[in-house]
Design a protein around this nucleic acid. Structure first.
Lengths: 296, 296
DNA sequence: CCTAACTTGTGAGCCAGACTAACGACCCCA
DNA sequence: TGGGGTCGTTAGTCTGGCTCACAAGTTAGG
């Protein structure tokens, strides 16, 4: 059978709780007349009195009290559900990024991001393991890779370029003119990014004569290079800050490009079914605009 | 925080259940446009999508599904509460009466009652123990007594009168002219209504010379009298039908009144806080009209 | 006892919110 | 490729629930 209007039931609930139409009306931001009318109609519909007057108080009858209790429960359920949905949509927006990318590219732009994007609750999580968007409470991942992961949406921010970097004083101590000169200096290498990729592209087929340190962490490798230990093969996105701030320099950037495009890009990754989708898309658009020149 | 409009939430719930705005709209007896608008507004308010299109179906997102589940629960709670209230107010109206009164007075009027009072679900419960209006599921009790019980409302229907009755053939076999003659015939007695009450009022101070049968059940006593076993002391309300239908007669009704008013009346008893109050009052008014001449 | 400040009851009239209608776009299936 | 289904969106209508205003009853204090 048809349910009475919901507003009517909430009026009953508030009135039963307050034992007063007037106080219920104040809680509901209506006049006492509205509450009175609602309850009168409900009593007519149910065919029974729900309140009896006791002096200036309106006390619910047993029937009214029981019904009000049910309505209280239902309201709590609704409130819990809506709060949960609101939290899902309005809770913090978590971005997961590698420590290297966070340190090398992101942090220098965070201030402008905060200024230009209306996003009140952004959390940056720097972690080197690859976060799982479905289970780790992460809304956005900034990932290196081919840009094809199952079940997620991907926007490519930048195509990575590779070039050697070292500290300025290292460059003074070791005069490097052309790619071939690198074969005789300490080469810092990342386990996922062999020097041969770059040397081959530069037309150097020989193998380095010095076995340098190996790293699993790009940020640490660049830090080491900045301390004058050797030459590292850097990705454009990660070294940008160190270059700009002078901790690293590019050996023969003036004489030749010294860069080689690699297939891997830097991607902005999210789930299309995220409850925070609208906020994610605003952020994505900002990132795409920010990296507009880096995808050629 | 403020709850979204309830209609909006029910639209969400129905749409999630049907995986279709159109089917939801049909269930809610509105157009698909109404559902579409409601859900669009809710998505705006929560800041997240609640449905995604899949071909011709609208499937709820995880957030939409969870919220819909909560709304389903809340609706079930509301429905249960309202049904309970409706049942309390519209369930069967139970009248408890003694078997004697039911048989002797009530049954002959039930047909007219059914015709004249709009009461679709009346249950007559004949039981000799005194029903408890608060716990026995009884809405109305027809009780003999002083008419003062705690916590209940009372309307007095009739003032009882006492008079002797016997079967017509008994009267032929035992010529009874005056009250004193009863001292020599078998007197059937009810345990709660001694003959002395009536004899004393008639100016007869002697005790009956024959000890007759004793009864706890008035109806059984009158039945026994109707079979010619003896003379019973009857209450007006209970013997009326047997008198009218000729099974019992009043020995000296023609020569003298032969009646004596007793204090106990026959009352219509109910609880003022009954959820069925409106129906009870209609019935009370009918009973009062029916017994209008019996309270002098 | 009177008054002031409460309370609820009730009816007239107004307004926002929810609806319908109607059109367009898309999807699916025969 | 067309027909029957879906949803999106807008403009315009209507009605349920509101406010307002007044009446009447209750309480508490001087």
């Amino acid at each position: 059978m048809r349910l009475p209007p919901f507003l009517t039931l909430t009026a009953l609930e508030a009135a039963a709780r307050h034992r007063s139409y007037s106080r219920a009306a104040r809680e509901l931001f209506v006049t006492h007349g509205a509450v009175s009318q609602q309850i009168r109609k409900l009593e007519d519909e149910l065919g029974t009195k729900l309140f009896v007057r006791q002096g200036n108080a309106m006390v619910p009858t047993a029937t009214g009290q029981r019904l009000a209790g049910h309505v209280t429960d239902a309201l709590a359920t609704l409130r819990a559900g809506v709060d949960e949905a609101r939290l899902a949509a309005n809770g913090p927006l978590v971005i997961s990024s590698s420590a290297a990318f966070a340190r090398g590219w992101l942090v220098t732009r965070l201030e402008r991001l905060a200024r230009e994007v209306d996003e009140p609750d952004l959390i940056l999580r720097a972690e080197d393991r690859v976060a799982d968007l479905t289970t780790d409470g992460v809304d956005i991942a900034l990932r290196f890779g081919l840009g094809a992961w199952p079940g997620v949406e991907v926007a490519t921010l930048m195509i990575e370029r590779l070039f050697p970097v070292c500290s300025p004083d290292f460059l003074v101590r070791h005069p490097i003119r052309e790619p071939r000169d690198l074969l005789d200096v300490p080469l810092l290498r990342h386990v996922g990014l062999p020097w041969s990729m770059w040397l081959t592209a530069m037309g150097v087929d020989e193998v380095p004569r010095q076995q340098g340190l190996g790293f699993e962490d790009t940020a640490l490798m660049l830090d080491t290079a900045a301390h004058g230990v050797g030459v590292a093969l850097a990705r454009s996105g990660l070294a940008e800050r160190d270059l700009r701030e002078g901790r690293l320099v590019r050996p023969f950037a003036d004489t030749m490009g010294g860069e080689v495009a690699v297939e891997t890009g830097n991607h902005f990754v999210w789930r299309a079914d995220s409850p925070k989708l609208a906020r994610i898309l605003k952020l994505r658009d900002w990132f795409l605009a920010e990296t507009a020149g880096l995808r050629g």
